[in-house]
Design a protein around this nucleic acid. Structure first.
Lengths: 156, 156
DNA sequence: CTCGTTGCAAAGGATTTGCACAAGT
DNA sequence: ACTTGTGCAAATCCTTTGCAACGAG
């Protein structure tokens, strides 16, 4: 079958995307991308921390400014996405398709949901307001089952 | 008719809610609440700015730390709500019912939508994950009609 | 060799916090 | 009077920026 199927997109090497824009492939960029993929949802800080761990006591990890710059770049290249979950902590993820995230306000837990959850809402907004929803940046907040359960038992 | 109808909730004076918790009614609290009501959606900074304007060159406005502390308090009292629109900028609003906000990522414009927009999505999440969506904190981001139009003409 | 990249350090903006004084009740 | 609330200033947190040295193509 085709060597350029739809799934090949995100799997395509970082190198090619960089090349096509006259940008350079550096070890730092590969490491940042790898970290985003490894940690499913991570803040820039968490990514920095991870890189520091990986590097070990002797090796050197990318500077935090480099992490920020590269996250921005990787997003422009379409290799990662970021979402705001609430209070100042964007999380980055590397899935191939835009996800929809739900966050528990109590425990901070994150779950991913199929993006079609909002299809009907998106259609209504498009029809009524001409507003195009960017599903990838949406995070719904609320309470997860576990926390709801706990709240109930503590607050009878 | 009952003197404690469901609509009387948000209209109930700030004073009573404070009293019932042993808290005090201060000029600052009244001003902060008034500002949130006046500015439909405002960041803590905008609220502070507004209070400074209102005070005029001679009068004194509440300190920003007081604004933050009181916004938090008013939210605990159920008189205001806050929503995160994306990058670190919480907005406060004082409507009686939770609203749903949509934000344009280009122009920053905010529109309010009826909360029932997400009813079906909320039901699905409840059924499938046991997750309770807090509609009041949800902000959908995307592109408004005007910005979409502009983007089209600039990028043919 | 040339120009994009990185690290370091310093600048910034937005909240938060500790405290002594001022103000509600 | 007693206790909560406020202003002020310092402390944080997270992110961005300027610049000289470094390294990929």
């Amino acid at each position: 079958m085709g060597s350029e199927g739809p799934t090949g997109d995100a799997a395509a090497p970082l190198a090619e995307r960089l090349r096509s824009q006259g940008l350079r492939l550096t070890a730092q960029r590969q490491r940042v991308l790898a970290a985003v993929e490894a940690l499913e949802h991570a803040t820039p800080e968490a990514i920095g921390a991870r890189l520091r761990e990986e590097a070990g006591p002797d090796g050197s990890a990318p500077d935090s400014s480099t992490v920020y710059r590269n996250l921005e770049l990787l997003e422009r290249l379409g290799l990662v996405w970021h979402t705001h979950l609430g209070k100042g902590a964007p999380i980055y993820h590397a899935s191939e398709h835009p996800h929809l995230h739900v966050v528990c306000a109590s425990c901070g837990g994150i779950a991913q949901v199929a993006p079609d959850l909002l299809d009907s809402a998106a259609e209504r907004l498009a029809a009524e307001l001409g507003f195009t929803v960017d599903v990838g940046h949406v995070a719904l907040s609320g309470t997860c089952a576990a926390c709801r359960e706990r709240a109930r038992s503590e607050n009878p």
